[in-house]
């Protein structure tokens, strides 16, 4: 069973970072993983995306036209990648910045105001963590406690950032489960 997750947004939104954290979590859960960044001639403020492949066997092609899931942090990313998502995939839309929907009736669409939630949790910079948490909570692609550990590990050495990110994780999870505000 192979699952592909596309993370996309503006440069600076921490897109590559949340892909990295999910890939780590997948590896810790015992899966084969690959993290493939976009490294084209991108401009600052331009689009950034990365693909994470999680599989229970050796990963073949790292080039994937149709990912199973999408986390879109800005509108151009949603417009570009939403049509490519496989049916029944999870599409997380950062509704703080995106005023449209995926335009698909065959995917599991999740509107998460990630920037607003992150702001309330302490820093708008944690919007990526909010979106990641919402995605993992909804897709159950890895165990949520494992994700929490991987986020902590990522911020080891910058201890003061951990409480904000833990709060962002928790609020993202609640938003996905519909038990938040």
């Amino acid at each position: 069973m192979q699952k592909e997750v596309m993370f996309a947004g503006f440069g600076g939104q921490g897109i590559l970072l949340i892909g990295d954290i999910l890939a780590h979590a997948g590896m810790e859960a015992g899966f084969e993983v690959a993290w493939i960044p976009s490294y084209g001639p991108e401009m600052r403020g331009g689009t950034a995306y990365c693909l994470v492949v999680i599989s229970d066997r050796a990963i073949g092609s790292p080039v994937i036209r149709n990912p199973l899931h999408l986390i879109a942090m800005n509108r151009p990313s949603l417009e570009k990648f939403a049509p490519l998502v496989k049916p029944n995939g999870v599409v997380v839309i950062n509704s703080s910045l995106i005023s449209i929907n995926a335009g698909r009736d065959d995917v599991d669409e999740l509107l998460i105001p990630a920037n607003d939630i992150a702001q309330e949790a302490g820093s708008v910079k944690a919007a990526n963590i909010v979106a990641l948490a919402a995605f993992v909570a909804r897709s159950k692609i890895v165990d949520f406690d494992l994700l929490r550990e991987c986020v902590k590990k990522h911020f080891a050495g910058r201890e003061k950032l951990i409480p904000i990110n833990m709060e962002a994780l928790e609020q993202g999870r609640k938003a996905a489960l519909g038990t938040g505000k």
Binding site: M27, E32, A34, W35, P37, Y39, V63
Partner: peptide, 10 residues
């Protein structure tokens, strides 16, 4: 190739 250099794997 560039992908081998840029990709992360365990």
């Amino acid at each position: 190739d560039g992908l081998i250099g840029q990709m992360m794997e365990p």
